[in-house]
Simulated assay, not measured.
Amino acid sequence: MCFVLEHLTDPALALRRLRRLLRPGGTLTVIEGDHGSALFHPDSAHAHAAIDCQVRLQAAGGGNALIGRELHPLLTGAGYRDISVRPRTVYADADRPALVEGFTRGTFIAMVNSVRDEALAAGLTTPADWARGITDLHRTAEPGGTFSYTFFKAVALL
């Protein structure tokens, strides 16, 4: 299961229900991100604030953009055993142009920027602060910039 739990209002219930689909000794693999793990250079409070708008809006809709850090307790609470959670970091800089374009610009910045209108309507930011945050995020994809993000991969047994 990949990038599903973060969108659910009750991920623990979903994990418990998935148990019915597994045979005894079967495995479940879960991959989720954690927007709180975004680290970048040059650092920017405005960029972090734009990311936080996305996190807050997802939470308001019942989801959790920080769920990657919760995989172990969620799986434990749902009755799985032999749980192994490992971070999987994506790091992009000028020496990795495909990641800069495909992940930093094309995935992460695009995802954050997609909530602009909703963030403004909710009063979470101003047009000027939003523009500054997105501009600063784009600087991380320019020469001299770096971007790092952590996904979490969990494997558990029934």
Rank of each mutant, 00 (worst) to 15 (best):
C2D: 13
F3V: 09
F3Y: 11
F3H: 12
T9I: 09
P11T: 02
P11H: 04
P11F: 05
L13N: 07
L13S: 14
L15Q: 04
R16K: 15
R17M: 03
R17W: 00
R19H: 11
R19I: 01
L21N: 03
L22K: 04
P24G: 06
G26E: 05
V30R: 06
E32N: 09
G33Q: 04
D34Q: 05
D34M: 10
H35D: 15
G36E: 11
G36H: 06
S37Y: 11
L39H: 12
F40C: 06
F40I: 09
F40L: 13
H41Q: 13
P42I: 11
P42F: 07
P42M: 10
D43R: 12
S44W: 07
S44N: 05
H46V: 11
A47F: 03
A50S: 15
A50C: 09
A50Y: 08
I51M: 14
D52H: 13
C53T: 04
C53N: 01
C53S: 03
L57I: 13
A60M: 10
G61N: 12
G61M: 09
G62Q: 02
G62R: 01
N64C: 09
A65H: 07
L66S: 01
L66I: 02
L66V: 00
I67S: 04
I67R: 04
R69S: 13
L75Q: 02
L75H: 01
G77W: 03
G77Y: 03
G77S: 08
Y80H: 03
Y80Q: 01
R81Y: 03
I83Y: 04
V85H: 01
R88Q: 13
R88D: 14
T89Y: 02
V90Q: 08
A92L: 09
A92I: 07
A92N: 09
A98C: 09
A98M: 14
L99K: 11
V100C: 14
V100F: 02
F103Q: 12
R105H: 10
M111N: 10
N113P: 00
V115N: 00
D117N: 06
E118P: 00
E118W: 00
L120G: 00
A121V: 01
G123A: 09
L124D: 03
A128T: 14
W130G: 03
G133L: 08
G133A: 03
T135D: 15
D136V: 02
L137W: 08
L137V: 13
H138V: 06
R139G: 10
R139Q: 15
E142A: 15
T146I: 11
F147K: 05
T150D: 08
K153D: 11
A156H: 05
L158H: 13
